[in-house]
Amino acid sequence: MIPIEITVNGRRYRETVPARLLLSDFIRHTLGLTGTHVGCEHGVCGCCTIILDGTSIRSCLFLAVQADGSELRTVEGLAGGGELTALQRAFRERHALQCGFCTPGILMAAVDFLGRHPEPSREQVVGLLSGHLCRCTGYEPIVEAILDAAGER
C-alpha cells in the first residue's frame, strides 16, 4: 500500500492505495466520483477520459500511484455546483447524449481539445471523436455540440 496525495476538482485527497489500483477505479470507488465511467479498460472507448495536470488522458491506462502529486479534473468539476458550461449546454441543446455513459469522457477530451484548438474545423472535431465510442447518438450531434461550444468561446 502506497500513500498518495491528489487534488481532484480543487479538493485535496490523501489516500493509501495498492500499487496496481487503476486510476479509474481510484476515482470511482476510492473517491466516489462516479461520473468518470469505465467502458473497456483497454483504452479504446474513451469513457474514462479525465484531465491530469492539464492534459486529457485515459484513466484506465494509468495507475493511481502515478497520479501522486497531480491535479485532476473530472466531469464533476466542469460546472461544479454552478450552471452548466457552454460545452455542457451545447450537448443538451443538440441532444448529443442519450444513455450518457460516454459523455463524461467526451466532455473532458473536448475541454482539453478546445483549449488547444479554439477554432477547430469539423474534420478536427471528427478526428478527436475517433477516440471515443458512442453507440447511441450516431456522433453527428456530438460534433455539432463541440463546434457550437467552440463558436461560443
Partner: peptide
C-alpha cells in the same frame, strides 16, 4: 504521429 491511436492516448 496523427495515425497513432487517438488524441488522449497521444497525450500520454
Amino acid at each position: 504521429v496523427p495515425h497513432i491511436g487517438h488524441f488522449a492516448t497521444r497525450n500520454r
